[in-house]
Each structure stands twice: as structure tokens, then as C-alpha cells.
Amino acid sequence: MKKQSEDSNEKKTEVTGNPQIPVNRREFLKTAGRFLALSVLGAGLLKFVKLKSPVTVWQIDPRKCIHCGRCATECVLNPSAVRCVHAYEACGYCKLCGGYYRPNASQLNTAAESQLCPTGAIKRTFIEDPYFKYQIDEDLCNGCGKCVKGCASFGNGSLYLQVRHHICVGCNECRIATRCPAQAISLVTTDQAYWKES
């Protein structure tokens, strides 16, 4: 017992016997380094980094979109955060809708063999002769863009693909954007979060 305490005493002297200067020097160096790091961070951020206060979100530019269908398959989410949006203002309410019917549909009815949408997400309702309203059930839509292609080539282009922000998780690098053949997806500020009619 006594021997042990002697041992620890020895250790203690070793500790205290250690010259104070290196410790101080180390402390000083550390403080200097800290201030250096602080100033580097601060100056770097102020000088080089372009800050923007509003937050940005990913969005598809429908003018560039070629409705290739990758939005449905490349999103990190399943089903994709990209869904079809219908701009009623631009819709022609056509009886023969290029976005609703298959190109060679023999009958203009709501049967499965006539419809273009693979998930049956477009609802067609009669308004008055010869006009029909087309409505998208977003829960069923998977963003494949088949109807968008149809509407763009045979209609007014009132159907278009958009990243739905309540679904999108806002990846730092959008996976669809990296795979988009038309480079149509980019970051926009939240006030331009959706493409709308005038």
C-alpha cells in the first residue's frame, strides 16, 4: 500500500516536473491555429462563395423536356417524385385526346385497350358535346410521360411533367437531372417552384 503511493508520488512529480513551457507553446499554437482556421473559413466564405438566401428546388423545364420516360425510372424514390400536371387553361378539351388515347385506338371509349396511361391515372369526364375534361389522379401517376408525349405531339401541350415538391426529398444532386437526356432539370428558387401558365 505504501509502496504504491510512493509510486504514484513519483509519477506525480514526473507530471509536475514536466516543464510548463511546451504545454503553453502547444496551447498558443492551438489558439493561433484556431484563429487561422476561423479567418480562413470566414474569408473564404465571404470572398469566394456566392450566397443566395432563398432555398432552391429541382424542377423540370417543360420547354426542354422530351418525355423520354427516365423520370419514372431514375428517381431515388419509388414511385418517382415527378408527376404529370394538367394545365386546364391550355387544354383544348378535345374529344380525341393525344394524351389519353393510344395512337391507334379504334374506339374513343374509356376501355383499357384505348388508354395510353399504363397506370390508368387519367380520368376522362364528359362536359358537353364535344368536350371532355381530363383529370390526373396523382396517386396513380408514375411520371412516365407517355401522355405528355401524346399531348405534346397531337395536342396543345397542356400535360407536362413536374417535380412535385411535397414528394421530392430534395437531393443535393438530383439523380434524374444527371440522367436527363435534355438537361431539362435544374435548380430553381421556390418562387418559381412550378411552371405555370401566364
Binding site: P54, Y88, G92, H165, T190
Partner: peptide, 26 residues
């Protein structure tokens, strides 16, 4: 020059607003 101009509805149909949902606030 839009291919199929917006029809003049006789039945008084009003086209609904496109629902864009809520955008997460800053």
C-alpha cells in the same frame, strides 16, 4: 395559334385551378 383553342363552354363549365400543392416554406 394553339392547335385546339380553349372551347367556349355552353354549360357554364369552369375549368378548375391546377393544384400545385404546398411548397415547403423557407
Amino acid at each position: 395559334q394553339s392547335r385546339f383553342p380553349r372551347p367556349e363552354f355552353q354549360s357554364g363549365y369552369e375549368s378548375p385551378e391546377t393544384n400545385f400543392g404546398i411548397i415547403r416554406s423557407v
